[in-house]
Design a protein around this nucleic acid. Sequence first.
DNA 1: TCGCCGAGTGTTACAGTGTATCACCCGCGA
DNA 2: TCGCGGGTGATACACTGTAACACTCGGCGA
Lengths: 164, 164
Amino acid sequence: MHDHAETHDAAGCCGDADGAISRAERICRERDLQFTRLRRDVLVAVAGQTKPLGAYDIAERLSAPGRRVAAVSVYRALDFLTENGLVHRIASRNAFVSCGHSHTDGAGLVFLICRNCGTIDETTSPEIEHQLGRTLAKAGFKPTSRILEVEGECGACLGRSAEA
Amino acid sequence: MHDHAETHDAAGCCGDADGAISRAERICRERDLQFTRLRRDVLVAVAGQTKPLGAYDIAERLSAPGRRVAAVSVYRALDFLTENGLVHRIASRNAFVSCGHSHTDGAGLVFLICRNCGTIDETTSPEIEHQLGRTLAKAGFKPTSRILEVEGECGACLGRSAEA
DNA sequence: TCGCCGAGTGTTACAGTGTATCACCCGCGA
DNA sequence: TCGCGGGTGATACACTGTAACACTCGGCGA
């Protein structure tokens, strides 16, 4: 897992990598999929961050003197993880974040990307999902996937700039 | 302009390149910006399509035996055009489409991307915009820009597959 | 008129992102 | 034991985007 696993095992300090891992294990067991070492490592790398990581960043992090992880392998692992809803791709950044919500599809997922600190937050809004459904129906469009990403300044950064 | 300009000058046949051009000319006049040949050519190339074009596609289209247009130049023109709301970037495709709506920012722009035929449509939904505003406010997030892209099957393709 | 300046463009080089392809390993069932 | 399929390693390559510098051209003040 990671270096200071003993000092905490709940959510918190690092994007809750442990939680993501156990969720992944459960999902793979349920769907009869392999949760291999590479896939686990990639998920840990992504989950240990609130900022999005590029595939090449991940490859670099996982590579050590003894082991070289090529970007291709990372992409394959990321494909697997995104297909199973464990990580999300941030289209506007060409980067990936681990999924916080154990999320029911169609929850109206919104990504909040902070211009200032680079942190990515997720929210959901059933109302947006509902309105979007109406809009699509009116347009005669049958959706298979959607992305909603908002860039701006997060609450924490707003607070910091206000007090300065 | 384009080859058969006389046969029509309204909307229609080719994504309404002419309309886009005249809108661009007006905007540049209003804002005291230069609507140069390169910028016009790039806009024409993009506006003549309902499918999104990559920057390199555009460069290729604009290049002719006598003139070579480098991708860099296209990127610069695209930056200019997107800044002024004349074209939009489709983040999920790394590609660009011309903007149909003479659009007031904050209209709740939605891109509908057809999996099947590749066509991109725009709609707007003030209701979504409204809900999104509420959601962001609740999260304490101050937005500067947003993207909402939906992938799926467009009405035309649904019709075609139904009749088959 | 001369020279400067700034915007736009051309050009080269390069960094970052993503995919195709083939080889290899390894577990598993026939 | 053999073959098979999924996962991985490795190389090569295509596509996307940016940095840096040179050049042109029009405007403007000395």
